[in-house]
Write a protein that binds this DNA or RNA. Structure first.
Lengths: 190, 190
DNA sequence: AAATAAATAGACCGATTTGTCTATTTCAAA
DNA sequence: TTTGAAATAGACAAATCGGTCTATTTATTT
Protein backbone atom coordinates (compact mmCIF):
# COMPACT_ATOMS: atom_id res chain seq x y z
CA UNK A 1 0.00 0.00 0.00
CA UNK A 2 1.17 3.46 -0.80
CA UNK A 3 3.01 4.85 2.19
CA UNK A 4 2.07 8.42 1.33
CA UNK A 5 -0.77 10.25 3.05
CA UNK A 6 -1.77 9.98 6.67
CA UNK A 7 -2.77 6.89 8.66
CA UNK A 8 -6.47 7.62 8.42
CA UNK A 9 -6.42 7.71 4.64
CA UNK A 10 -4.08 4.76 4.42
CA UNK A 11 -6.51 2.66 6.44
CA UNK A 12 -9.41 3.54 4.14
CA UNK A 13 -7.36 2.95 1.01
CA UNK A 14 -6.17 -0.44 2.18
CA UNK A 15 -9.60 -1.44 3.45
CA UNK A 16 -11.05 -0.42 0.10
CA UNK A 17 -8.59 -2.62 -1.73
CA UNK A 18 -9.06 -5.63 0.52
CA UNK A 19 -12.82 -5.44 0.94
CA UNK A 20 -13.11 -5.40 -2.83
CA UNK A 21 -10.62 -8.16 -3.51
CA UNK A 22 -11.44 -10.55 -0.67
CA UNK A 23 -14.85 -9.52 0.54
CA UNK A 24 -15.89 -7.77 3.72
CA UNK A 25 -16.29 -10.71 6.08
CA UNK A 26 -13.22 -12.48 4.77
CA UNK A 27 -11.03 -9.47 5.51
CA UNK A 28 -9.79 -9.07 9.07
CA UNK A 29 -8.80 -5.76 10.56
CA UNK A 30 -5.34 -7.11 11.40
CA UNK A 31 -4.59 -7.63 7.73
CA UNK A 32 -5.74 -4.11 6.97
CA UNK A 33 -3.47 -2.71 9.66
CA UNK A 34 -0.47 -4.70 8.50
CA UNK A 35 -0.81 -3.75 4.86
CA UNK A 36 -1.55 -0.14 5.70
CA UNK A 37 1.40 0.00 8.09
CA UNK A 38 -0.71 1.47 10.79
CA UNK A 39 -1.20 0.80 14.48
CA UNK A 40 -4.40 -0.80 15.68
CA UNK A 41 -5.26 2.15 17.87
CA UNK A 42 -5.27 4.41 14.83
CA UNK A 43 -8.13 2.46 13.33
CA UNK A 44 -10.23 2.74 16.44
CA UNK A 45 -9.62 6.43 16.96
CA UNK A 46 -10.39 7.44 13.37
CA UNK A 47 -13.12 4.90 12.79
CA UNK A 48 -14.93 3.43 15.75
CA UNK A 49 -15.27 -0.17 14.66
CA UNK A 50 -14.91 -2.46 11.69
CA UNK A 51 -18.53 -1.84 10.75
CA UNK A 52 -18.01 1.90 10.90
CA UNK A 53 -15.00 1.48 8.67
CA UNK A 54 -17.21 -0.50 6.36
CA UNK A 55 -19.71 2.35 6.24
CA UNK A 56 -16.95 4.87 5.56
CA UNK A 57 -15.78 2.55 2.81
CA UNK A 58 -19.13 2.49 1.03
CA UNK A 59 -19.57 6.24 1.33
CA UNK A 60 -16.15 6.90 -0.15
CA UNK A 61 -16.72 4.33 -2.88
CA UNK A 62 -19.99 6.00 -3.84
CA UNK A 63 -18.27 9.33 -4.35
CA UNK A 64 -15.32 7.78 -6.16
CA UNK A 65 -17.56 5.88 -8.52
CA UNK A 66 -19.55 8.83 -9.78
CA UNK A 67 -16.46 11.02 -9.90
CA UNK A 68 -14.78 8.46 -12.12
CA UNK A 69 -17.85 8.17 -14.33
CA UNK A 70 -18.32 11.91 -14.73
CA UNK A 71 -14.70 12.48 -15.58
CA UNK A 72 -14.93 9.66 -18.11
CA UNK A 73 -17.88 11.24 -19.86
CA UNK A 74 -17.01 14.07 -22.18
CA UNK A 75 -18.49 17.39 -21.16
CA UNK A 76 -19.53 18.52 -24.61
CA UNK A 77 -21.36 15.40 -25.64
CA UNK A 78 -25.02 14.68 -26.19
CA UNK A 79 -27.13 12.70 -23.75
CA UNK A 80 -27.16 9.86 -26.23
CA UNK A 81 -23.38 9.85 -26.43
CA UNK A 82 -23.10 9.98 -22.67
CA UNK A 83 -25.47 7.06 -22.23
CA UNK A 84 -23.55 4.84 -24.59
CA UNK A 85 -20.26 5.95 -23.15
CA UNK A 86 -21.42 4.63 -19.77
CA UNK A 87 -20.96 1.18 -21.19
CA UNK A 88 -17.46 2.02 -22.35
CA UNK A 89 -16.79 3.17 -18.82
CA UNK A 90 -18.10 -0.12 -17.53
CA UNK A 91 -15.98 -2.11 -19.95
CA UNK A 92 -12.86 -0.22 -18.95
CA UNK A 93 -13.64 -0.74 -15.27
CA UNK A 94 -14.23 -4.45 -15.61
CA UNK A 95 -10.85 -4.90 -17.26
CA UNK A 96 -9.16 -2.53 -14.83
CA UNK A 97 -10.50 -4.38 -11.79
CA UNK A 98 -9.79 -7.84 -13.14
CA UNK A 99 -13.50 -8.61 -13.35
CA UNK A 100 -14.13 -8.32 -9.65
CA UNK A 101 -17.46 -6.77 -10.51
CA UNK A 102 -19.36 -4.12 -8.62
CA UNK A 103 -18.21 -3.20 -5.11
CA UNK A 104 -21.76 -2.43 -4.06
CA UNK A 105 -23.39 -5.57 -5.40
CA UNK A 106 -20.64 -7.69 -3.91
CA UNK A 107 -20.96 -6.02 -0.55
CA UNK A 108 -24.73 -6.22 -0.56
CA UNK A 109 -24.51 -9.96 -0.95
CA UNK A 110 -22.61 -10.12 2.32
CA UNK A 111 -24.17 -7.52 4.55
CA UNK A 112 -27.75 -7.30 3.30
CA UNK A 113 -29.18 -8.79 6.49
CA UNK A 114 -26.21 -7.90 8.68
CA UNK A 115 -25.84 -4.15 8.57
CA UNK A 116 -28.72 -1.80 7.82
CA UNK A 117 -26.61 1.31 7.38
CA UNK A 118 -24.30 -0.25 4.82
CA UNK A 119 -27.33 -1.59 3.00
CA UNK A 120 -28.84 1.89 2.92
CA UNK A 121 -25.73 3.41 1.37
CA UNK A 122 -25.71 0.74 -1.29
CA UNK A 123 -29.39 1.21 -2.08
CA UNK A 124 -28.96 4.98 -2.24
CA UNK A 125 -26.04 4.59 -4.60
CA UNK A 126 -27.99 2.43 -7.00
CA UNK A 127 -30.98 4.74 -6.77
CA UNK A 128 -28.70 7.57 -7.79
CA UNK A 129 -27.53 5.54 -10.75
CA UNK A 130 -31.10 4.84 -11.73
CA UNK A 131 -31.95 8.54 -11.61
CA UNK A 132 -28.81 9.28 -13.59
CA UNK A 133 -30.00 7.10 -16.45
CA UNK A 134 -33.52 8.49 -16.21
CA UNK A 135 -32.25 12.04 -16.62
CA UNK A 136 -30.21 11.24 -19.69
CA UNK A 137 -32.97 9.24 -21.36
CA UNK A 138 -35.52 11.95 -20.66
CA UNK A 139 -33.38 14.28 -22.77
CA UNK A 140 -33.70 11.90 -25.69
CA UNK A 141 -37.29 10.76 -25.35
CA UNK A 142 -39.25 13.82 -24.37
CA UNK A 143 -42.75 13.11 -25.55
CA UNK A 144 -43.62 9.82 -23.85
CA UNK A 145 -42.63 9.83 -20.20
CA UNK A 146 -43.73 6.25 -19.55
CA UNK A 147 -41.72 5.01 -22.49
CA UNK A 148 -38.70 6.98 -21.35
CA UNK A 149 -38.81 5.37 -17.93
CA UNK A 150 -39.28 1.92 -19.38
CA UNK A 151 -36.21 2.41 -21.55
CA UNK A 152 -34.03 4.01 -18.90
CA UNK A 153 -34.84 1.27 -16.41
CA UNK A 154 -34.12 -1.32 -19.07
CA UNK A 155 -30.76 0.28 -19.67
CA UNK A 156 -30.16 0.10 -15.94
CA UNK A 157 -30.99 -3.61 -15.96
CA UNK A 158 -28.75 -4.24 -18.96
CA UNK A 159 -25.99 -2.33 -17.19
CA UNK A 160 -26.32 -4.29 -13.97
CA UNK A 161 -26.75 -7.58 -15.76
CA UNK A 162 -23.60 -6.87 -17.74
CA UNK A 163 -21.65 -6.30 -14.53
CA UNK A 164 -22.74 -9.61 -13.07
CA UNK A 165 -22.27 -11.65 -16.21
CA UNK A 166 -18.95 -10.02 -16.92
CA UNK A 167 -17.72 -11.04 -13.49
CA UNK A 168 -18.96 -14.57 -14.06
CA UNK A 169 -17.40 -15.11 -17.48
CA UNK A 170 -14.34 -12.95 -16.94
CA UNK A 171 -15.05 -11.31 -20.25
CA UNK A 172 -16.46 -8.06 -21.60
CA UNK A 173 -18.87 -9.56 -24.10
CA UNK A 174 -21.82 -8.92 -21.76
CA UNK A 175 -20.96 -5.22 -21.72
CA UNK A 176 -20.75 -5.09 -25.49
CA UNK A 177 -24.05 -6.93 -25.81
CA UNK A 178 -25.69 -4.59 -23.32
CA UNK A 179 -24.43 -1.52 -25.15
CA UNK A 180 -25.71 -2.77 -28.46
CA UNK A 181 -29.21 -3.48 -27.19
CA UNK A 182 -29.26 -0.19 -25.28
CA UNK A 183 -28.55 1.52 -28.60
CA UNK A 184 -31.39 -0.36 -30.22
CA UNK A 185 -33.81 0.61 -27.48
CA UNK A 186 -32.84 4.26 -27.64
CA UNK A 187 -33.29 4.34 -31.40
CA UNK A 188 -36.79 2.90 -31.25
CA UNK A 189 -38.79 5.90 -32.32
CA UNK A 190 -42.21 6.40 -30.82
CA UNK B 1 -35.40 -27.27 10.57
CA UNK B 2 -37.45 -30.26 9.57
CA UNK B 3 -36.47 -33.18 11.73
CA UNK B 4 -37.43 -35.68 9.07
CA UNK B 5 -34.87 -37.33 6.82
CA UNK B 6 -31.40 -38.43 7.79
CA UNK B 7 -28.58 -36.36 9.30
CA UNK B 8 -26.77 -36.00 5.99
CA UNK B 9 -29.76 -34.43 4.28
CA UNK B 10 -30.62 -32.34 7.30
CA UNK B 11 -27.14 -30.81 7.24
CA UNK B 12 -27.46 -29.86 3.59
CA UNK B 13 -30.95 -28.47 4.02
CA UNK B 14 -29.94 -26.36 6.98
CA UNK B 15 -26.73 -25.21 5.34
CA UNK B 16 -28.71 -24.26 2.25
CA UNK B 17 -31.08 -22.14 4.31
CA UNK B 18 -28.35 -20.43 6.30
CA UNK B 19 -25.86 -19.86 3.50
CA UNK B 20 -28.62 -18.18 1.55
CA UNK B 21 -29.98 -16.09 4.41
CA UNK B 22 -26.72 -15.07 6.10
CA UNK B 23 -24.03 -15.67 3.55
CA UNK B 24 -21.36 -18.34 3.40
CA UNK B 25 -18.61 -16.76 5.45
CA UNK B 26 -21.02 -15.39 8.03
CA UNK B 27 -22.41 -18.84 8.72
CA UNK B 28 -20.45 -21.05 11.10
CA UNK B 29 -20.67 -24.82 11.07
CA UNK B 30 -21.70 -24.83 14.71
CA UNK B 31 -24.87 -22.95 13.89
CA UNK B 32 -25.61 -25.39 11.10
CA UNK B 33 -25.15 -28.33 13.45
CA UNK B 34 -27.35 -26.84 16.14
CA UNK B 35 -30.22 -25.98 13.81
CA UNK B 36 -29.96 -29.30 12.02
CA UNK B 37 -29.84 -31.17 15.33
CA UNK B 38 -26.84 -33.10 14.23
CA UNK B 39 -23.53 -34.02 15.81
CA UNK B 40 -20.37 -32.39 14.59
CA UNK B 41 -18.83 -35.70 13.60
CA UNK B 42 -21.72 -36.32 11.21
CA UNK B 43 -20.78 -33.28 9.19
CA UNK B 44 -17.18 -34.36 8.84
CA UNK B 45 -17.99 -37.94 7.90
CA UNK B 46 -20.57 -37.05 5.25
CA UNK B 47 -18.84 -33.94 4.00
CA UNK B 48 -15.15 -33.52 4.57
CA UNK B 49 -14.97 -29.85 5.43
CA UNK B 50 -16.98 -26.66 5.38
CA UNK B 51 -15.74 -25.92 1.87
CA UNK B 52 -16.79 -29.36 0.68
CA UNK B 53 -20.20 -28.73 2.20
CA UNK B 54 -20.25 -25.47 0.31
CA UNK B 55 -19.54 -27.27 -2.94
CA UNK B 56 -22.26 -29.81 -2.22
CA UNK B 57 -24.55 -26.89 -1.52
CA UNK B 58 -23.97 -25.25 -4.90
CA UNK B 59 -24.36 -28.51 -6.77
CA UNK B 60 -27.65 -29.25 -5.07
CA UNK B 61 -28.84 -25.68 -5.59
CA UNK B 62 -28.08 -25.92 -9.32
CA UNK B 63 -30.26 -28.97 -9.68
CA UNK B 64 -33.03 -27.53 -7.53
CA UNK B 65 -33.11 -24.31 -9.48
CA UNK B 66 -33.62 -25.82 -12.90
CA UNK B 67 -36.04 -28.39 -11.54
CA UNK B 68 -38.13 -25.59 -10.09
CA UNK B 69 -37.97 -23.63 -13.32
CA UNK B 70 -38.91 -26.55 -15.54
CA UNK B 71 -41.82 -27.54 -13.36
CA UNK B 72 -42.99 -23.92 -13.42
CA UNK B 73 -42.98 -23.79 -17.20
CA UNK B 74 -45.97 -25.42 -18.84
CA UNK B 75 -45.10 -28.38 -21.01
CA UNK B 76 -47.44 -27.58 -23.86
CA UNK B 77 -46.44 -23.98 -24.34
CA UNK B 78 -44.54 -22.24 -27.10
CA UNK B 79 -40.94 -21.11 -26.76
CA UNK B 80 -42.16 -17.55 -26.63
CA UNK B 81 -44.53 -18.36 -23.79
CA UNK B 82 -41.81 -20.21 -21.94
CA UNK B 83 -39.39 -17.32 -22.28
CA UNK B 84 -41.82 -14.81 -20.87
CA UNK B 85 -42.88 -17.19 -18.14
CA UNK B 86 -39.27 -17.30 -16.96
CA UNK B 87 -39.82 -13.79 -15.70
CA UNK B 88 -42.97 -14.84 -13.89
CA UNK B 89 -40.90 -17.56 -12.30
CA UNK B 90 -38.35 -14.98 -11.27
CA UNK B 91 -40.99 -12.69 -9.82
CA UNK B 92 -42.49 -15.51 -7.80
CA UNK B 93 -39.06 -16.52 -6.52
CA UNK B 94 -38.10 -13.02 -5.49
CA UNK B 95 -41.25 -12.72 -3.40
CA UNK B 96 -40.92 -16.24 -2.06
CA UNK B 97 -37.35 -15.68 -0.91
CA UNK B 98 -37.99 -12.26 0.57
CA UNK B 99 -35.78 -10.60 -2.04
CA UNK B 100 -32.61 -12.37 -1.00
CA UNK B 101 -31.72 -12.53 -4.67
CA UNK B 102 -29.74 -15.20 -6.47
CA UNK B 103 -27.92 -17.83 -4.41
CA UNK B 104 -25.21 -18.11 -7.03
CA UNK B 105 -24.56 -14.41 -7.50
CA UNK B 106 -24.51 -13.91 -3.75
CA UNK B 107 -22.11 -16.77 -3.23
CA UNK B 108 -19.86 -15.69 -6.08
CA UNK B 109 -19.41 -12.33 -4.41
CA UNK B 110 -17.95 -14.09 -1.40
CA UNK B 111 -15.92 -16.96 -2.77
CA UNK B 112 -14.84 -15.74 -6.21
CA UNK B 113 -11.19 -15.54 -5.23
CA UNK B 114 -11.43 -17.96 -2.35
CA UNK B 115 -12.63 -21.25 -3.76
CA UNK B 116 -12.07 -22.25 -7.38
CA UNK B 117 -14.39 -25.26 -7.31
CA UNK B 118 -17.35 -23.32 -5.98
CA UNK B 119 -16.68 -20.65 -8.55
CA UNK B 120 -16.69 -23.25 -11.31
CA UNK B 121 -20.06 -24.62 -10.26
CA UNK B 122 -21.51 -21.13 -10.26
CA UNK B 123 -20.08 -20.30 -13.67
CA UNK B 124 -21.35 -23.59 -15.09
CA UNK B 125 -24.78 -22.91 -13.72
CA UNK B 126 -24.99 -19.52 -15.34
CA UNK B 127 -23.62 -20.89 -18.59
CA UNK B 128 -26.43 -23.43 -18.54
CA UNK B 129 -28.92 -20.63 -18.05
CA UNK B 130 -27.41 -18.73 -20.96
CA UNK B 131 -27.72 -21.78 -23.20
CA UNK B 132 -31.26 -22.29 -21.98
CA UNK B 133 -32.26 -18.84 -23.21
CA UNK B 134 -30.35 -19.31 -26.45
CA UNK B 135 -32.25 -22.49 -27.23
CA UNK B 136 -35.64 -20.92 -26.67
CA UNK B 137 -34.84 -17.82 -28.67
CA UNK B 138 -33.44 -19.84 -31.54
CA UNK B 139 -36.91 -21.42 -31.89
CA UNK B 140 -38.41 -17.99 -32.36
CA UNK B 141 -35.77 -16.32 -34.49
CA UNK B 142 -34.60 -18.93 -36.92
CA UNK B 143 -33.29 -16.97 -39.83
CA UNK B 144 -30.69 -14.67 -38.28
CA UNK B 145 -28.45 -16.53 -35.87
CA UNK B 146 -26.43 -13.49 -34.85
CA UNK B 147 -29.59 -11.58 -34.08
CA UNK B 148 -30.97 -14.51 -32.10
CA UNK B 149 -27.86 -14.61 -29.94
CA UNK B 150 -27.89 -10.87 -29.42
CA UNK B 151 -31.48 -11.06 -28.22
CA UNK B 152 -31.08 -14.13 -26.06
CA UNK B 153 -28.02 -12.69 -24.36
CA UNK B 154 -29.88 -9.43 -23.82
CA UNK B 155 -32.69 -11.35 -22.20
CA UNK B 156 -30.11 -13.01 -19.98
CA UNK B 157 -28.76 -9.60 -18.99
CA UNK B 158 -32.24 -8.25 -18.32
CA UNK B 159 -32.95 -11.35 -16.26
CA UNK B 160 -29.79 -11.01 -14.18
CA UNK B 161 -30.13 -7.27 -13.85
CA UNK B 162 -33.68 -7.74 -12.61
CA UNK B 163 -32.48 -10.14 -9.91
CA UNK B 164 -29.92 -7.68 -8.63
CA UNK B 165 -32.14 -4.61 -8.77
CA UNK B 166 -35.03 -6.49 -7.23
CA UNK B 167 -32.84 -7.44 -4.30
CA UNK B 168 -31.72 -3.84 -3.95
CA UNK B 169 -35.14 -2.22 -4.03
CA UNK B 170 -37.05 -5.06 -2.37
CA UNK B 171 -39.59 -4.85 -5.14
CA UNK B 172 -40.57 -6.71 -8.28
CA UNK B 173 -40.74 -3.73 -10.60
CA UNK B 174 -37.36 -4.61 -12.14
CA UNK B 175 -38.71 -8.02 -13.09
CA UNK B 176 -41.79 -6.51 -14.69
CA UNK B 177 -39.66 -3.99 -16.55
CA UNK B 178 -37.33 -6.73 -17.75
CA UNK B 179 -40.20 -8.86 -18.96
CA UNK B 180 -41.72 -6.01 -20.88
CA UNK B 181 -38.52 -5.13 -22.70
CA UNK B 182 -37.81 -8.80 -23.35
CA UNK B 183 -41.20 -8.98 -25.05
CA UNK B 184 -40.35 -5.95 -27.14
CA UNK B 185 -37.04 -7.42 -28.22
CA UNK B 186 -38.62 -10.74 -29.18
CA UNK B 187 -41.28 -9.02 -31.24
CA UNK B 188 -38.77 -7.00 -33.26
CA UNK B 189 -39.12 -8.65 -36.58
CA UNK B 190 -36.11 -8.93 -38.83
C1' DA C 1 12.33 24.55 24.65
C1' DA C 2 8.04 23.05 26.68
C1' DA C 3 3.51 21.30 26.11
C1' DT C 4 0.19 18.90 23.60
C1' DA C 5 -1.57 15.84 20.30
C1' DA C 6 -0.94 11.82 17.13
C1' DA C 7 0.82 7.62 16.18
C1' DT C 8 3.30 3.63 17.47
C1' DA C 9 4.06 -1.51 19.11
C1' DG C 10 2.18 -5.03 21.15
C1' DA C 11 0.28 -7.45 25.14
C1' DC C 12 -4.04 -8.91 26.31
C1' DC C 13 -9.12 -10.16 26.42
C1' DG C 14 -13.16 -13.04 25.56
C1' DA C 15 -15.51 -14.96 21.92
C1' DT C 16 -15.60 -17.56 17.90
C1' DT C 17 -13.62 -20.13 14.03
C1' DT C 18 -12.81 -24.91 11.71
C1' DG C 19 -11.52 -29.20 12.77
C1' DT C 20 -10.07 -33.59 15.68
C1' DC C 21 -10.78 -36.94 18.92
C1' DT C 22 -12.81 -39.94 22.60
C1' DA C 23 -16.38 -42.32 24.56
C1' DT C 24 -21.01 -43.53 24.56
C1' DT C 25 -25.45 -44.61 22.61
C1' DT C 26 -28.73 -45.76 18.98
C1' DC C 27 -30.17 -48.64 15.43
C1' DA C 28 -30.39 -51.96 11.85
C1' DA C 29 -28.91 -56.15 9.80
C1' DA C 30 -27.33 -60.88 10.20
C1' DT D 1 -29.57 -61.85 20.07
C1' DT D 2 -25.29 -60.58 18.66
C1' DT D 3 -22.45 -57.79 15.72
C1' DG D 4 -21.11 -53.67 13.41
C1' DA D 5 -22.13 -49.40 11.58
C1' DA D 6 -24.09 -44.75 12.37
C1' DA D 7 -24.96 -41.18 15.18
C1' DT D 8 -24.47 -38.90 19.42
C1' DA D 9 -22.45 -35.30 22.98
C1' DG D 10 -18.92 -32.71 23.98
C1' DA D 11 -14.15 -31.87 25.35
C1' DC D 12 -10.32 -30.07 23.18
C1' DA D 13 -6.97 -27.76 20.07
C1' DA D 14 -4.86 -24.06 17.45
C1' DA D 15 -5.90 -20.11 15.11
C1' DT D 16 -8.25 -15.95 14.35
C1' DC D 17 -11.74 -12.63 15.25
C1' DG D 18 -12.93 -7.63 16.81
C1' DG D 19 -11.72 -4.77 20.33
C1' DT D 20 -9.31 -2.59 24.68
C1' DC D 21 -5.54 -0.94 27.00
C1' DT D 22 -0.77 0.55 28.46
C1' DA D 23 3.40 2.57 27.60
C1' DT D 24 6.43 4.71 24.50
C1' DT D 25 7.75 7.50 20.69
C1' DT D 26 7.09 10.83 17.11
C1' DA D 27 5.23 15.41 15.44
C1' DT D 28 3.24 19.59 15.89
C1' DT D 29 2.23 23.74 18.07
C1' DT D 30 2.82 27.37 21.15
Amino acid sequence: MASNSNPKDRILQTASKLFYAQGYNATGINQILEEANVAKASLYTHYGSKDDLGIAYVKAAREDWFNALNSFLEKNSTSMEKLLRCFDFLERNMRLNDYKGCRFINLLAEVSTQNAEMRKEIVDHKSTLRAFFQNLVSDIIEDDKAKANQISDSILLLFEGAIVQSKIHLDVWPVKTAKKTATTLLNTKT
